[in-house]
């Protein structure tokens, strides 16, 4: 016996939550582009499983810019005010399984030595409703990093598009239960996801190669076409580097936390002018090492869910999958 919900019922459930003051984010279509956005009416969203998204759901947990505290100068004093706590309930609907899977990957990072209340409060307040994939494309490689088109990791409920204007609902957590309880009907229909994307490389072997080949000239060679923007990192559901800057004037302003990317030359530029990662090859090595060696060594997760957003959005046709394939072909399999 399965539980199903129609699209109309799903929308009215979201509208009900919106009317209760809940924040809802869903895929919104703009021409050919689909991106996750906050919506004010359920109708603004577009509810079908998608492969290509212009952003990931991470911005509802780790926004592209976020105020940490504000400051005001009062006479001889400076008055600091902490940013308020995140107190509204939030629902992210329409996540890809590879988007949702990034959340458990990021949990240990934001709660390791320093407890990041900004991330943790959003995490606690948010219900993630994912759609199982109905198709994959050449950029997808979730299978290589332990995922699948119906990966449940990080989701509170997983919906399967039945193709008839309804979804099979598989509730995974209490938060998911709270959202769907009483909204679904019994059915004997069950949904199915697409086949898992195929890959012909093994991430573990590439990780071993990366460990052993810090100084390989291959890094420079494969990275030549990368122009060093942050697009891959900013569409990535797992990339989490940030910069903290002051904005405002002498008299009042705020400290903000903004997304940053290790692919930009400024990222490691020292005040002396020295840059330990002075070339794009070194910066790509950092990106790949962090994703497949240092992060798993520390937190047991690959810092990659295989969503393929990086290569889909790269203007230079680069990204994690092409890099892994190049390392596999020219490093691992060539025995270099």
């Amino acid at each position: 016996m399965s539980q199903i919900i129609t699209l109309e019922q799903l929308k009215s459930a979201l509208d009900e939550k919106l009317s209760q003051g809940c924040r809802v984010a869903a895929p919104v279509l703009d021409g050919e582009f689909a991106s996750f956005k906050e919506i004010t009416k359920a109708d603004q969203g577009s509810y079908e499983p998608r492969v290509a998204m212009q952003n990931s759901i991470k911005e509802f947990f780790f926004p592209k810019h976020e105020t940490l505290f504000t400051f005001v100068r009062q006479g001889q004093d400076v008055v600091l005010t902490d940013a308020p706590d995140f107190e509204v309930d939030q629902i992210v609907v329409g996540a890809r399984p590879c988007d949702a899977a990034a959340l458990p990957v990021l949990d240990p990072l934001f709660g390791w030595d320093y407890q990041d209340r900004f991330f943790q409060q959003r995490r606690a307040k948010t219900t993630v409703v994912s759609f199982a994939c109905v198709k994959s494309d050449a950029h997808c490689f979730c299978t290589a990093v332990g995922g699948s088109p119906e990966n449940t990791s990080g989701s509170d409920a997983l919906l399967f598009d039945l193709g008839d204007g309804s979804f099979e609902v598989r509730v995974l957590t209490d938060k998911g239960k709270a959202l769907f309880e009483g909204k679904t009907t019994d059915s004997d229909k069950t949904g199915q996801s697409c086949d898992a994307p195929t890959v012909d490389f093994e991430v573990d072997k590439i990780a071993d190669w990366i460990r052993a080949n810090f100084a390989s000239p291959l890094w420079e060679k494969i990275s030549l076409r990368c122009v060093g923007c942050g697009a891959c990192a900013f569409v990535c559901p797992t990339c989490h580097c940030f910069d903290m800057v002051d904005e405002g004037s002498y008299n009042k302003g705020k400290k903000v936390k903004n997304w940053d990317s290790c692919q930009e030359a400024m990222f490691t530029l020292h005040a002396s002018g020295h840059n330990p990662r002075g070339t794009q090859g070194k910066r790509q090595r950092q990106r790949l090492s962090h994703k497949f060696v240092t992060y798993p060594d520390k937190f047991k997760f690959y810092l990659c869910t295989g969503c393929g957003s990086c290569s889909r959005s790269c203007g230079q046709m680069f990204g994690v999958r092409p890099t892994l394939e190049a390392l596999d072909k020219e490093g691992v399999k060539a025995g270099q």
Binding site: Q54, N55, G228, C229, G230, V235, E264, M266
Partner: peptide, 20 residues
């Protein structure tokens, strides 16, 4: 509102060549 300040526009432009 969708701009994420990744600077892909700048980095892919042949004429945005400033070192800083």
């Amino acid at each position: 509102s969708r701009c994420v300040r990744c600077y892909a526009c700048r980095q892919s432009c042949p004429l945005c060549y400033c070192n800083r």
